[in-house]
Amino acid sequence: MRFQVQYPVCLMAAIQLSGCTIVDAKYNPRRTYQGSNGQELRPPVLANSAPGLEKPLQTLDTRKPPVEVEMFIMSKCPDARDCVRDLVLPVMAQLYDSGIINLRPTYIGKPDDSNAGMACMHGPDECLGDILELCAYELYKDSPQRWLGFINCMGQKYQNIPQDEYVSDCALEYGIDFDQLERCAASEDENRGMELLRTSARRAIDRGISTSCTVTVNGKTVCVRDSGQWKGCTGSKEDLVQEVQHAYDNE
């Protein structure tokens, strides 16, 4: 199956930064994306990258609301890859079964309201990668073993985003229905995929966050991965687990 993303996508200026902090620019190419055809999904593979996430979420007797953890990322950013792989995913694997954590991804970029497009730091391919990852989240919001596994898989060789085979392999590995994923990403009905990204980018802007990867707990920035370094934190799973547990205990 072959489809085209029909939205104008703005490319960020060719300013090479060591980290993934958004800068300003304009350019409007279009991107063609080829999906798979006739591939059969196999059960999610979780053991190597997301131990524990295959467990069902348990209901707590206390009925306390879970702690809101948010990761602000870009799909083609090496800092986001490290942050998801080394920090966020291990924390989710440890805390998911407890029911005290609710994780969401937010993507950093600049909405271009003049043409309903987007500006992404690493170009139009990143915009499409962001859309695909947001679609996986929207489709499998209650199954982090799927959407977070997919995001982690995409990040491991982020240079390949959004090559058809690479995206479909990650979808296949984590039980993502690729037909649904590409329909979401390319839908012309209310520009669903692009609007997901534009809404997500506005959320990051409203919170004053422009660095990928930034992790917040109940709205408070607790850890940043920038230019290959951890800032404001040690980057250890134990520290973030403690932050989440402390926030939960004090709700």
Rank of each mutant, 00 (worst) to 15 (best):
I100F: 06
L87I: 11
G52K: 09
D82T: 15
S200K: 08
K110G: 07
V215E: 04
L181S: 01
Y137M: 13
P56T: 03
C184P: 03
R81P: 00
R198P: 00
E138V: 11
T211Y: 06
S236M: 10
V91C: 06
V217I: 14
T216L: 07
D249Y: 10
E188K: 02
D177W: 05
Q58A: 14
I15V: 14
A50W: 04
E251N: 15
G208A: 04
I205K: 06
C10V: 12
T62Q: 10
S200Q: 04
A14N: 09
V222W: 05
V91K: 05
E173R: 14
M154F: 00
L128F: 10
L87G: 09
G208F: 07
P78Y: 01
G123D: 01
G117F: 01
L89N: 04
P66Y: 10
V45F: 08
C213M: 04
A119Q: 14
D130N: 15
Y27R: 11
S227T: 03
C184H: 01
Q34W: 06
R104W: 15
C77R: 11
A14E: 05
M118T: 12
Y107T: 09
G149R: 05
P111Q: 03
P56H: 00
S212Q: 04
R42A: 08
V241D: 01
S98C: 08
E68T: 15
G232E: 15
A13E: 10
V88Y: 01
G38R: 05
T199E: 11
E133D: 13
C120G: 05
G109M: 02
Q242S: 13
Q4N: 13
R85G: 05
P51E: 14
F178T: 09
N102M: 12
C135D: 02
K231T: 09
V241H: 10
E243P: 00
K55Q: 11
D130K: 03
P44T: 02
E173M: 14
A14C: 06
D239P: 06
L134S: 06
A13R: 07
S200W: 01
E182C: 02
C10F: 10
K220R: 11
Q34A: 05
D130F: 04
A247T: 11
R183H: 13
I161T: 05
E238M: 15
M121G: 04
L60F: 09
L148F: 02
P66S: 15
N250R: 14
Y158F: 10
C83E: 13
M92H: 03
L87R: 01
L148V: 12
I151L: 09
P78S: 02
C213F: 09
Y96M: 14
N160R: 11
W147M: 04
A201S: 07
M92C: 03
Y158A: 04
R198D: 00
N250D: 07
L53T: 00
Q16L: 11
G175P: 14
R225P: 01
V241P: 09
C120R: 00
R198E: 00
Y96E: 12
P144Q: 10
D125E: 08
V45T: 08
K55T: 04
E165S: 08
N48D: 13
I101T: 06
V45C: 08
D113N: 15
A47P: 02
C127H: 03
R104H: 15
Y174W: 15
A14M: 09
Q145S: 08
V88A: 06
T216C: 07
R63S: 14
W147S: 02
N102C: 15
L148G: 04
I176F: 03
N115V: 15
V217G: 07
R146L: 06
S212D: 05
